[in-house]
Computed example of a mutant assay.
Amino acid sequence: MSERLDTLNKARARMLEDRDMHAKVLAAPFDRDKAERARNKFIEIQILIDALDRAIGGERPVAGTVESGA
């Protein structure tokens, strides 16, 4: 695995942990201020996770292609 792909996977794992923390706040008994902040952060982090997924997908070699040594 390339160093770049490893870094992207670690970042994704970290963002999943952060997202889970905000999901727990959303699942807890309702507190309007906390829920609103948690909801906004959850959405922000999910967008980041989606971007990381696309970046990870872009790092995987495509079958049939040859990397140039230049």
Results as ranks from 00 to 15, higher is better:
46 Q>S: 14
37 R>F: 15
5 L>I: 06
65 T>F: 06
70 A>L: 07
34 K>M: 07
7 T>K: 14
49 I>P: 08
23 A>L: 10
4 R>D: 03
40 N>E: 13
13 A>K: 12
11 A>D: 11
10 K>V: 12
46 Q>H: 08
13 A>Q: 07
19 R>C: 14
4 R>T: 08
32 R>P: 05
34 K>L: 11
68 S>L: 09
26 L>T: 04
45 I>S: 04
45 I>V: 11
23 A>I: 10
21 M>C: 05
42 F>S: 10
35 A>W: 13
5 L>H: 00
47 I>M: 10
69 G>P: 01
5 L>E: 01
56 I>K: 00
51 A>F: 04
8 L>T: 00
14 R>H: 13
40 N>C: 07
24 K>P: 02
55 A>Y: 01
64 G>C: 01
18 D>S: 13
52 L>M: 08
16 L>W: 13
56 I>T: 02
39 R>P: 12
3 E>Q: 11
67 E>R: 13
32 R>C: 03
44 E>S: 12
40 N>Y: 11
32 R>W: 03
34 K>Y: 05
57 G>I: 02
43 I>A: 07
36 E>W: 14
66 V>Q: 05
5 L>Y: 02
59 E>P: 09
41 K>F: 05
18 D>P: 04
65 T>W: 03
10 K>Y: 05
45 I>L: 13
66 V>C: 02
47 I>Y: 05
19 R>P: 07
61 P>Y: 00
42 F>G: 07
53 D>P: 08
69 G>R: 12
65 T>M: 07
37 R>Y: 14
2 S>M: 09
40 N>F: 12
3 E>V: 02
69 G>A: 09
39 R>Q: 15
40 N>A: 15
9 N>F: 03
19 R>L: 09
54 R>P: 05
1 M>K: 11
22 H>Y: 15
50 D>P: 08
53 D>W: 02
8 L>D: 02
59 E>I: 02
6 D>C: 10
41 K>T: 06
68 S>F: 06
55 A>K: 04
25 V>Q: 06
38 A>H: 06
21 M>E: 08
66 V>E: 08
53 D>F: 03
16 L>M: 15
9 N>W: 03
64 G>T: 01
18 D>A: 10
25 V>D: 05
46 Q>R: 14
21 M>P: 00
52 L>D: 00
16 L>F: 15
63 A>K: 07
62 V>I: 14
30 F>S: 04
43 I>G: 01
7 T>V: 10
12 R>T: 04
52 L>W: 03
20 D>Q: 14
63 A>T: 04
6 D>T: 09
51 A>N: 12
16 L>V: 15
48 L>T: 02
19 R>T: 09
